[in-house]
Write a protein that binds this DNA or RNA. Structure first.
Lengths: 234, 234
DNA sequence: AGAAAAAAAGCGAACGTTCGTTATTTTTTA
DNA sequence: TAAAAAATAACGAACGTTCGCTTTTTTTCT
């Protein structure tokens, strides 16, 4: 699977995402005209990501956001009741995006090693596609209340659990080595996160997301796949 | 190398670190009595790490810090001129700690694979020993001015460059495979960071730092070491 | 089709609160 | 007793949010 293939499989344009934000926050968003609301949500979210990438959510003031989005202070508040609620909306939407894509890619009846590759790559590609969302979710989760933070942790645990399940199935099928799969899954998660947490590094090195994803798969397979020498020893 | 061995090699008790902070910030710290200053620095830094772990540096108020450290508002300011300077002191000291340990462990004339293991483990063990520092450095670097942020990026680039150098030397010696060593170094960095960024996960699973470090080495060696099957093909 | 009225969207000043910091006073230490 | 350390109150600035007013858009009426 290449990034271009992935892009053909998911509907995740910024507009589509904002449409979903609008649909799912009807009780919060006080704007009647859907197209106006969506256009302004794009401005707001874009500005949030720009500012927070540079200085973080807490350091971002509503005046910063107003200036950057081009909406006045009063024009923003029909979209969310408070700065804190804005945070919640973004994080919930980000999580839903990740979950939807993951659900789409985690199933399939092909071989374990292909499933593993597909799941790892889907995450990397989605994080490429929605970089600001992923970066924001990682760096700003600490601003949540304890209850909502728990949901974030569960989200990470869930994606790791799927990888563990694939590794276990592959071990039973004789494809993957016996390892501490829970640790392997965590390390894979770290490899995936490296891509979107260190965007500047890969941009500077002119490494494409396909190159990175293939490299990660190669790395993981070296460790996980049963080698010929293993089989010969048996 | 085990974590216990590592601990015997570095002087990094909290007191020793605070003594270095005091020594290196003589023009900022207005307290004459060294032992008093060091004791209070321990309180301040401990409180900073507690609070920022939970809510981040920007969300931490000086009143939070005062309450948590047990020092009054006025009693804190002889230690730093402003909140921003406090940030700078911590990040600089953290960087110096990392650099000192790294310098101690990166040299040696043993085989490339042993050097690689030593360097990777030293970083993981130091991050275990000084978890709050590492977590803080990662999460709060964005609060720095552009110039200081550059120093952080250079610090990460430097440690990766050492790993690249080891991998290249190992390749020349026929020990390591030909790979994109720059990407390998970055992925190793991600594995190291996983340990201290996700402290809750490993604590919950009762994974020791020695177990984690060995697992990472095994993972990396699977990918990097020339295998028997490679040599037989040649 | 155009005007007027109503609804929706947007603006910006002001509110009450909290912030980082300082100056002065008080307390502790030697 | 003097110096050092600590405490406290207050300052000016900035914050998140609200509210009344203004502008724009849509609907209704002729």
């Amino acid at each position: 699977m290449k990034y271009a293939d992935f892009l053909n499989m998911v509907d995740d344009s910024t507009r589509a995402v904002c449409r979903r934000v609008y649909a799912e926050n009807k009780d919060t968003i006080k704007i009647k005209k859907e197209e106006t609301a969506i256009k302004n949500l794009e401005k707001i979210l874009g500005a949030v990501f720009d500012i927070t990438y540079e200085k973080g959510f807490q350091a971002m003031s509503m005046r910063d956001l107003s200036r950057r989005s081009g909406l006045s202070m009063g024009a923003m508040y029909p979209y969310f009741r408070s700065k804190e609620e804005l945070l919640g909306i973004i994080l919930r939407q980000g999580r839903a995006m990740l979950k939807n894509v993951f659900e789409k890619f985690k199933t399939g009846s092909e071989r374990p090693e292909d499933r593993l590759e597909k799941v790892i790559k889907a995450h990397i590609f989605l994080s490429e596609r929605a970089k600001p969302w992923f970066y924001f979710m990682f760096m700003e989760a600490k601003n949540l209340s304890a209850g909502e933070r728990k949901a974030i942790l569960e989200s990470e645990a869930y994606t790791e659990a799927v990888i563990v399940e694939i590794l276990e199935a592959g071990e039973r099928a004789g494809v993957f080595r016996k390892r501490r799969h829970v640790l392997t899954a965590s390390i894979i998660k770290a490899m995936q996160q490296e891509w979107y947490l260190k965007r500047w590094k890969y941009a500077r090195r002119k490494v494409t997301v396909d190159e990175y994803a293939d490299y990660v798969i190669n790395f993981v397979n070296s460790f996980c796949l049963v080698q010929n020498s293993d089989m010969e020893a048996n």
